[in-house]
C-alpha cells in the first residue's frame, strides 16, 4: 500500500477523503490534521523490501501459522525428509523463547535461524529481514517462516512472504476458522494437520472446517496431512512445488533496485 499516490484509497475509505478539508482549525486554537495513513506502513514497507530480496534470489517464502502445538515444526521435519533431496530449504523460526525448534530443524541438515521474540507474540517484517542476513539466499529454493504459535497476532503483519499456510490440527476443533476469521481469511492453503488423530477423535469434520473457511470468502484449498504417518504429504509437497514454479515464473522479471534504511551489505 502506498501513501503518496493515493492507491490506498478504496471503496471503504474514500468517504474519509471527502469529509471536510484535510487541515481544519478547531475553536480552541489547536491544529487538526487529517493523516489517513495505514498504521503498519513501516512494517509493510519492510515486507516489500524482503519480497525484493526473495525475488532477486528466486526464493519462495512461505509463512507458516497456527496455534502453538498444531505441528508446524513436525510438518517442516517431514517436508524436509520428502523434499530435501530436490530442493534447498531453509527455515526462519519465531518463538517467545528457546532455540529448540531451530535445533530440531538443523538436525535434518537444513539451515535454521531462530528469532527469539521475547515478549512479542508475532514476527514482523523487520525481524524477518534481520534473520535473512543470516541466510545465503543464493543457495536456497524455499524459505519457511515458522511464525510464533498464535492464531491472532501473526495475521496482521506482512513479512514479505508469497503465501500463507495455516495449520489447523484435528484436536483443536473444526470451528477454528469461525473463531479466528482474520487468520483463516489470510490463508492461501489450510493444512488439517494430525489427520492420524481424526478417526480417534471422531468429532473433527474436515468438510465442516472447509465450510467455515468458505464462509470467510476464502477459496483456499484444504489438505489433510499427518507428519507422523505421511498421509497427505504428497498433496502438500505437490502444492509447494507448484507454488515454487509459479513464483519463479512470476518473479522472472528483474527486481527493482531498492535502498536500505540502514546501510548494510548482503552476502
Amino acid at each position: 500500500m502506498c501513501d503518496t499516490c493515493g492507491c490506498n484509497v478504496t471503496h471503504g475509505n474514500e468517504h474519509l477523503l471527502k469529509s471536510g478539508a484535510p487541515l481544519a482549525q478547531t475553536s480552541n486554537g489547536s491544529e487538526s490534521i487529517e493523516v489517513l495513513k495505514g498504521l503498519l506502513a513501516a512494517n509493510d514497507h519492510e515486507a516489500q523490501h524482503n519480497r525484493e530480496h526473495f525475488a532477486e534470489h528466486r526464493v519462495l517464502a512461505v509463512n507458516l501459522m497456527s496455534s502453538p502445538g498444531a505441528g508446524k515444526t513436525a510438518l517442516l521435519e517431514a517436508t524436509i525428509r520428502d523434499l530435501g533431496d530436490r530442493y534447498r530449504i531453509a527455515v526462519i523460526v519465531g518463538d517467545l523463547e528457546t532455540e529448540n525448534d531451530a535445533e530440531r530443524i538443523r538436525r535434518h541438515g537444513v539451515p535454521a535461524i531462530q528469532i527469539s521474540t521475547g515478549s512479542a507474540c508475532h514476527l514482523d517484517a523487520h525481524m524477518v529481514h534481520s534473520a535473512l542476513h543470516g541466510l545465503d539466499l543464493q543457495e536456497i529454493d524455499i524459505v519457511f517462516i515458522e511464525n510464533v504459535g498464535n492464531l491472532v497476532c501473526p495475521a496482521s503483519f506482512d513479512l514479505g512472504q508469497h503465501c500463507n499456510v495455516t495449520l489447523l490440527s484435528s484436536p483443536e476443533g473444526d470451528d477454528k476458522p469461525q473463531k479466528y476469521p482474520v487468520m483463516f481469511r489470510a490463508a492461501d492453503l489450510v493444512l488439517l494437520s494430525k489427520s492420524d488423530l481424526t478417526p480417534i477423535l471422531g468429532d473433527f469434520d474436515p468438510r465442516r472446517a472447509e465450510r467455515h473457511v468458505r464462509e470467510l470468502a476464502n477459496g483456499a484449498p484444504l489438505i489433510e496431512v499427518s507428519s507422523r504417518n505421511g498421509h497427505g504429504m504428497s498433496a502438500w509437497t505437490g502444492w509447494l512445488e507448484r507454488a515454487l514454479q509459479l513464483q519463479r515464473a512470476n518473479g522472472a522479471v528483474e527486481p527493482q533496485r531498492h535502498v536500505h534504511a540502514a546501510a548494510h551489505t548482503h552476502d
Binding site: 487538526s32 470467510l216 470468502a217
Partner: peptide, 28 residues
Amino acid sequence: NRLLCGQCSDWRTELLSGDELLLDRIEM
C-alpha cells in the same frame, strides 16, 4: 466471521471495508 453475501449467500465476495487500520486525524 461470515463473509457470505447478505442477499444471495454466495461466498465469492470481495471485502469493501472492515480491515482498516488507519490513523485518521490528530489534534495538536
